[in-house]
Amino acid sequence: MATFKESLEDFARKHKKDINANPVLRAEFNKMCAGIGVDPLASNKGFWAQLLGVGDFYYELAVQIIEICLFTRSLNGGLICLSDLTQRVQKRRKVDKISTEDIKIAINKVHLLGAGFSLLQSGKTTLVVSVPTELSSDHAAILQMAQASDSHVTVGELVQKLQWVEKRVRLALDLMMQAGMAWLDAQGADGPREVYWFPSLWEEGLCQTQRDRGTGQGGREEGDNRSPG
């Protein structure tokens, strides 16, 4: 099987044009690649791609980039480090050397498909965002956390409990601030730390506090102050 695999990879690199020109062969070739787990997208960068950025090379790369983002989305919520992404793409493209520059060009190539897939500079690292806020469920997750802790959270808590990178937490919180769903208290009750409050959860938070008190766990100060009657 190893011989098959190598030969297929070789063919995918060298004969792509001929394979595509013949629909019957193309169908069979794709079946082969699928069965054996060879990525049929392995065009050489070639002279023209290098010079003008034309040809399928960058489209292929874009497909592989988005694919990796899709696979890792459940772990990172659509935020991936450019260097990590480059390494993963490199693993797929066994022979060609893929640089972060190539990745950037490929991402620019699919810019036509709208916003929402973009590069984000965060300090020294560049992140690739593949989930636009319109489709992100991170905000819901944060609200859920807030619901469980008296309608407020801190960045540190979220990073710890959700196992997210800080950037991801901040991105989500920023949007909620902009939307007026979250309020920032720069001087939290327990000292100088930033506490995000969710006023829309107050009522529910209160009920929670009362229940907590009922079971003898004791409510927090904020909750007590607002408890009715």
């Binding site: 794709n30 997208l41 497909v63």
Partner: peptide
């Protein structure tokens, strides 16, 4: 689905005919 995701999955399914 974002067009990017569609672009990726649809092209994947099309094999070499991007």
């Amino acid at each position: 689905m974002t067009l990017h995701d569609v672009f990726c999955l649809f092209n994947r399914a099309r094999g070499t005919a991007l």
